[in-house]
Amino acid sequence: MVHQYYLGLTSSSHTVIFEGHEYWQYLWPSVAVWVIDRVLRVVRLFYCNFHVAVTGRNKIHTTRSRMTYDQTADVIRLVVAPGTKLLQPKPGDYYFLYQPFRFVGWENHPFTVGAWAYDADPSAVGSASFGKLNGSMDASHLPLLYAVAPEQEAEDLSESAGEKTAASRLKLVFWIRPYDGWTRSLRQQCLHSKEGVVDTTILLEGPYGHNFPLWRYESVLLIVGGTGIASAAPYIQDHLRRSARGEESLDEKSRIRDMELVWTARQTAFLHDVASRELRPALGREDFQASLYVTRNPTESPQELVDLGCQVRAGRPHIQSLIMGRVCDAAAAGLSLAILVCGPAGIADEARAATHLAMRQGYRSIKYVEESFAW
């Protein structure tokens, strides 16, 4: 009885402030903000995933998606073709992803866009490249992350949806590391499919995020871990586009003279998959170099990565030495330096401490950018 009386007294003391509606003037503004936020997010869902065409056979376009799971790399590759044609992706963008036809279809998780490309007329794509752009093509509709395999994925995705049209269509690529909950469910769906490929319905909400102007710095160091490559790859390809001859649609040319990618991953398979697809246009350039580190099964042969032009090492990089070396080189050459970091907490902590140490030693022209690695 004593305990029951105590609980009742506590409950009464917590709710007595609402008697007489004295504090409702503070409650309703919060409710209004929440309702407006929900409404705007629903509007974004329809904006990203549905498009009504005035002409053509297909009047209504909806979002299509395809995912594959690489057991060796332990990564899900998700390709999404948004229903709308109005999205203009850029580095730093992320979307909330929904899988609506589930018991908990309202659940959503944020993922950074790691790559994107546009379907185009095959003859037009064949006549253009990153180095030389055809003046008759809209540069904004050129594949930002061009590689044969992703383009084939995009073409297959459109064919399966019955949308073989001359107009270009955007394809977004996400890399998802399966853990628990929804990501584990995605992995199981891929494993249960006969060919390891699943055509499913994934809805987008976004874009969110911000775009940092790395192209304004002359020396750039990218330090990423695992699927954190999704933050760095768009900036690499943005540099390629801004450096390309004849690119007149961009507001500002790239000033980058030296860009280095330091990427640590568990499996060689994931490194090779991304290097042979999204990073291939950058490998071999004089102003770009990639140092890849493998932390699991380092005895696997990395010869294919070496052939692509990558430096492959076993273990983890010494972050402080890398940053201090880059800072000294940039200072000696009189170059401005930007450091982008996206990875586990350990990598981010080391990079932040090393940058702070360099600035304390007098190197002030450093811009440090840290992207969140998890939600």
Rank of each mutant, 00 (worst) to 15 (best):
residue 49 N to G: 03
residue 17 I to Y: 06
residue 312 V to R: 07
residue 208 Y to L: 01
residue 277 R to S: 14
residue 96 F to S: 05
residue 348 A to V: 15
residue 120 A to Q: 08
residue 291 S to A: 12
residue 349 D to S: 15
residue 245 R to E: 13
residue 303 Q to G: 01
residue 151 E to S: 15
residue 182 W to N: 03
residue 145 L to Y: 03
residue 367 K to C: 14
residue 254 S to C: 08
residue 207 P to M: 04
residue 62 T to Y: 15
residue 128 A to V: 11
residue 68 T to D: 05
residue 115 A to E: 14
residue 92 G to W: 15
residue 168 S to C: 06
residue 204 L to S: 05
residue 28 W to A: 07
residue 356 H to F: 10
residue 259 M to S: 10
residue 343 G to D: 02
residue 371 E to Q: 15
residue 141 H to G: 06
residue 265 A to R: 03
residue 327 V to K: 01
residue 322 L to Q: 12
residue 257 R to D: 14
residue 207 P to V: 02
residue 95 Y to V: 00
residue 161 A to M: 01
residue 131 G to T: 10
residue 115 A to H: 12
residue 337 L to T: 07
residue 142 L to Y: 07
residue 168 S to D: 09
residue 359 M to D: 03
residue 117 A to P: 01
residue 301 S to H: 07
residue 164 K to R: 14
residue 20 G to W: 08
residue 265 A to N: 09
residue 23 Y to K: 15
residue 95 Y to N: 03
residue 312 V to S: 10
residue 203 L to P: 08
residue 59 K to L: 09
residue 200 T to A: 10
residue 296 R to P: 00
residue 248 E to K: 11
residue 216 R to K: 08
residue 300 E to C: 05
residue 292 L to V: 02
residue 165 T to L: 10
residue 143 P to R: 04
residue 4 Q to D: 13
residue 281 P to W: 00
residue 20 G to I: 03
residue 293 Y to T: 04
residue 4 Q to H: 14
residue 49 N to L: 11
residue 109 H to V: 03
residue 205 E to M: 08
residue 355 T to H: 01
residue 66 R to H: 05
residue 317 P to D: 01
residue 320 Q to N: 14
residue 223 I to P: 05
residue 122 P to R: 14
residue 322 L to A: 12
residue 27 L to E: 09
residue 176 I to S: 11
residue 295 T to A: 02
residue 139 A to C: 12
residue 352 R to S: 09
residue 188 Q to D: 07
residue 62 T to H: 12
residue 301 S to I: 02
residue 279 L to R: 07
residue 86 L to N: 13
residue 118 Y to C: 14
residue 79 V to W: 12
residue 186 L to M: 13
residue 84 T to D: 02
residue 282 A to V: 01
residue 306 V to I: 11
residue 131 G to A: 09
residue 166 A to L: 11
residue 135 G to A: 14
residue 6 Y to D: 04
residue 104 V to F: 15
residue 300 E to H: 13
residue 252 E to V: 12
residue 1 M to S: 09
residue 112 T to E: 01
residue 217 Y to N: 09
residue 156 D to R: 13
residue 21 H to T: 12
residue 57 R to G: 15
residue 56 G to F: 00
residue 168 S to N: 15
residue 106 W to A: 06
residue 123 S to K: 09
residue 190 C to N: 03
residue 278 E to R: 02
residue 132 K to G: 08
residue 369 V to F: 07
residue 290 A to P: 04
residue 13 S to F: 10
residue 282 A to W: 00
residue 222 L to P: 01
residue 207 P to Q: 04
residue 205 E to F: 00
residue 210 H to Y: 05
residue 26 Y to A: 14
residue 67 M to A: 04
residue 129 S to D: 14
residue 328 C to H: 15
residue 185 S to G: 05
residue 95 Y to T: 02
residue 90 K to V: 09
residue 22 E to S: 14
residue 33 V to H: 04
residue 284 G to P: 00
residue 162 G to N: 03
residue 183 T to Y: 02
residue 283 L to G: 01
residue 347 I to F: 13
residue 32 A to N: 03
residue 92 G to F: 07
residue 341 V to C: 04
residue 292 L to H: 02
residue 125 V to L: 11
residue 297 N to I: 03
residue 66 R to W: 07
residue 296 R to D: 06
residue 163 E to Q: 13
residue 238 D to H: 07
residue 21 H to P: 06
residue 80 V to W: 03
residue 216 R to T: 06
residue 317 P to C: 02
residue 201 T to V: 13
residue 321 S to E: 15
residue 250 L to F: 06
residue 251 D to G: 11
residue 224 V to S: 08
residue 74 D to G: 06
residue 149 A to F: 08
